[in-house]
């Protein structure tokens, strides 16, 4: 059988996968199958690396019951994009603020990758990254979430993330008193 290597098309990838087994098949909670580069999966996810090393990868689709198909598609998409990207030299950010430890800044394509996600999809992706032990993807998603919070009041944060205010007025007042919350023009 002739296989045209070097093309990134889905069908071609599948044929190559079957021939060379350089991909693994993952199965979402709702039973959908996804192919991912074995090298990228092992490099980016400690959990998948452990499964590959331990031989617990199922050729017919390794069950990931905690991850839905939309989130798994994003995980796989991220892994495959990562496999094809050339890492830039300066990954560690120069910490702008005294308060934050230096974090790895997302690359441009990674920013775009999370920017296009809905809030629900972002939530599912960060949970999937956490579950699969994907440090780099956690960096990228947590960075995005922190950007969504930065400079916002508690009310605005609740609005952005659709969070119900579970504080009573008295409780909030008590917390503010702990901080001796007071402004000159109050």
């Amino acid at each position: 059988m002739e296989v045209d290597k070097g093309k990134g098309e889905a069908e071609e990838t599948r044929k190559v996968a079957e021939a060379d087994r350089d991909t693994v098949t993952l199965k979402s909670s709702d039973g959908k199958l996804f192919e991912v580069s074995k090298e990228a999966a092992a490099r980016l996810s400690t959990v998948l690396a452990g499964m590959i090393a331990g031989g617990s990868i199922d050729d017919n689709g390794t069950d990931l019951k905690q991850i839905g198909s939309e989130a798994l598609e994003n995980v796989v998409d991220y892994c495959n994009k990562h496999a094809n990207s050339i890492p830039s030299a300066a990954l560690i950010s120069s910490s702008i603020s005294f308060n934050t430890a230096p974090f790895k800044e997302p690359e441009e394509w990674e920013r775009k990758f999370v920017d296009r996600l809905s809030h629900d999809a972002l939530f599912d992706l960060v949970e999937a990254a956490n579950f699969l032990g994907m440090e780099r993807l956690l960096d990228v998603t947590c960075h995005k979430i922190s950007e969504m919070m930065k400079g916002k009041s508690p009310d605005q944060i609740r609005e952005v993330f659709n969070i119900k205010n579970d504080y009573t007025k008295e409780e909030l007042e008590e917390i503010r008193q702990e901080l001796a919350w007071a402004f000159y023009d109050d």
Partner: peptide, 19 residues
């Protein structure tokens, strides 16, 4: 992880009061 990126002031004044 998210709070570490925000820093102490943003957490104390805003984020932790969300819920």
């Amino acid at each position: 992880d998210v709070f570490l990126r925000l820093g102490p002031l943003d957490v104390l004044l805003d984020a932790e009061l969300a819920c």
